[in-house]
Measured scan of single mutants.
Amino acid sequence: TFVEFNGKKVEYPTPEAAEKAAKKLAKKLNLKVTKKNGNYKLE
């Protein structure tokens, strides 16, 4: 499962880990999380 932000793509071993990381990053970077095709994107 990938988390995409600032043009970077980071892969996580589980969807749970990706979701957790996405939410944490979104909060830190003041972005919102969108889920697309099972992957997460911060914008």
Rank of each mutant, 00 (worst) to 15 (best):
K41L: 15
P15R: 12
K35D: 05
V3R: 00
L29H: 12
G7Y: 05
K27G: 07
A21R: 04
V10L: 12
T1Q: 05
K28G: 06
K24A: 14
P13E: 09
K20H: 11
A26T: 02
V33G: 01
A26C: 04
A26I: 03
K41P: 01
T14N: 10
E16I: 09
Y40V: 04
K24S: 13
F2D: 01
K24D: 12
K36N: 13
P15H: 08
E43V: 14
K9E: 05
A17P: 01
G7R: 05
N37R: 06
K20F: 12
K35G: 05
E43T: 11
L29I: 03
E16A: 11
V10W: 15
K32Q: 09
K36Y: 14
L31N: 00
N6Y: 13
N6Q: 10
K28P: 02
L29N: 05
K20D: 10
N30M: 08
Y40L: 07
A17F: 05
A26K: 02
E16Q: 12
K23F: 15
K32D: 04
K9I: 13
K23P: 00
A22Q: 01
F5K: 01
V33C: 12
T34R: 08
A26Y: 01
F5I: 07
T34P: 00
Y12I: 02
E11G: 10
F2P: 00
N30C: 14
K32C: 14
N39A: 10
K23C: 15
F5L: 07
T14K: 03
E19S: 08
E4S: 08
A22V: 08
V33M: 10
A17K: 09
N37E: 11
A22H: 00
L29P: 00
T14F: 05
V33F: 06
A18C: 03
L42T: 02
A26N: 01
Y12G: 00
V3Y: 03
F2T: 10
K20A: 13
V3P: 00
L25Q: 03
E43H: 09
K36W: 13
K41S: 12
L29C: 14
V3W: 02
N37D: 14
G7K: 06
P13C: 09
A18W: 01
T14S: 10
T1Y: 15
K9N: 08
K41D: 04
K9Y: 11
E4D: 05
N6I: 06
F2C: 09
E16S: 09
E43M: 10
E16Y: 10
N39S: 12
A17S: 09
E4F: 12
A26W: 02
V10I: 13
E4A: 05
V10N: 06
N37W: 06
K28L: 14
P13L: 09
L42H: 02
L31K: 03
T1K: 07
A26G: 06
A17I: 09
K20L: 12
K32E: 06
N37G: 11
K35I: 15
L31F: 04
E19A: 11
N30W: 06
G38K: 05
A18L: 02
K41W: 14
A22M: 04
V3H: 00
E11D: 07
L42I: 11
L29F: 15
E4K: 03
A22D: 00
T1L: 06
K23W: 14
F5Q: 00
G38S: 05
G38W: 03
K9M: 12
K41R: 11
E4Y: 12
G7T: 04
T14W: 03
E4R: 03
A21K: 03
P15M: 11
L31W: 04
F2A: 05
F2Q: 04
K35F: 15
G7I: 01
T14A: 03
V33T: 04
A21W: 07
E4M: 09
K24C: 15
N30A: 07
E11F: 15
E43P: 01
K20W: 11
E19D: 07
K41M: 15
Y12L: 03
K24I: 14
N39K: 05
N37L: 07
L29E: 03
K35M: 14
N30K: 11
K23Y: 15
T1A: 11
K8P: 01
K27Y: 10
K24P: 00
A18P: 00
N37I: 03
G38Y: 04
T1W: 15
N39L: 10
K24G: 09
K9S: 10
V3Q: 00
T14V: 03
G38N: 08
A17R: 07
A17N: 04
F2E: 03
V10D: 04
L25R: 02
A18H: 00
L31A: 05
K35V: 14
Y40W: 12
L31H: 02
K24F: 15
A17L: 13
E19Y: 15
E11N: 11
P15I: 09
Y40H: 03
F2V: 08
K35N: 08
L42S: 02
A22I: 07
K28T: 10
E19W: 15
K24H: 12
K28Y: 11
P15E: 11
L31G: 02
L29S: 03
P13H: 08
K36E: 15
L29R: 05
E19T: 05
K27Q: 11
K28H: 11
K28F: 11
P13K: 11
V33H: 02
K27N: 09
Y12E: 00
A21C: 09
K9W: 11
K9T: 10
T34S: 09
E11S: 13
L31R: 03
L42Y: 01
E11C: 15
T14I: 03
L31Y: 05
E16K: 11
K28A: 13
K20S: 10
P15A: 12
K24L: 13
P13G: 08
K36R: 12
K24N: 11
G38L: 04
E19M: 11
K20M: 12
L29T: 04
E11R: 15
T34I: 13
N39P: 01
Y12D: 00
T34D: 05
P15G: 07
P13R: 10
V33W: 08
A17M: 12
K9A: 09
G7E: 05
N6R: 13
K8W: 15
K8G: 06
Y12N: 00
K41I: 15
A26L: 02
K28Q: 11
K8L: 11
A26E: 02
G38C: 06
A21H: 05
T1R: 09
K41H: 15
E4I: 12
V10F: 14
V3I: 08
F5R: 02
A22L: 04
K28V: 11
V10A: 07
K9G: 04
E43C: 13
K9L: 11
P13A: 12
A26M: 04
E19I: 08
T1F: 15
N39T: 12
A21M: 08
K20E: 12
P15L: 07
K32S: 09
N39F: 09
K20V: 10
Y40A: 01
K8F: 13
K23E: 09
E11H: 15
T1C: 13
K28I: 13
T34H: 08
L42F: 05
G38M: 04
A21L: 04
N37Y: 07
N39I: 14
T14H: 05
N39E: 08
L29K: 05
A17C: 10
K23D: 08
L25C: 10
N39R: 06
Y12P: 01
Y12H: 03
A18S: 02
N30Q: 10
V10E: 06
N6A: 11
K24W: 15
K28C: 14
A17V: 06
K32A: 07
E43L: 10
E16R: 11
K9P: 03
K32P: 03
T14L: 02
L25I: 10
V10R: 13
L42A: 02
K27F: 10
E4W: 10
F2G: 03
K27C: 14
F5M: 05
G38V: 02
E16G: 09
L29D: 02
K32F: 08
K28N: 07
K23R: 14
Y12S: 00
E4P: 00
L25F: 07
F2K: 03
V33S: 03
N37F: 08
A17Y: 06
G7W: 04
N6E: 09
T1E: 02
F2H: 06
K36M: 14
L42N: 01
T14C: 07
F5S: 01
Y40S: 01
Y40C: 02
E19R: 12
A22S: 04
P13W: 06
G7A: 04
F5D: 00
K27W: 09
E19H: 12
F2M: 07
V33K: 02
A26S: 06
V10C: 14
E16N: 08
E19G: 07
K20I: 12
K8T: 10
K27A: 12
K35W: 13
Y40I: 09
K35S: 08
E16T: 07
E43W: 12
K36P: 05
L42K: 02
V10H: 09
L31E: 00
K32N: 07
V10T: 11
A17D: 10
K28E: 11
F2S: 07
K8E: 08
A18G: 04
K28R: 13
K9F: 13
P13I: 06
T1N: 11
K36T: 14
A18K: 00
G7C: 11
E4G: 02
K41G: 05
L29V: 03
A17T: 07
L29A: 04
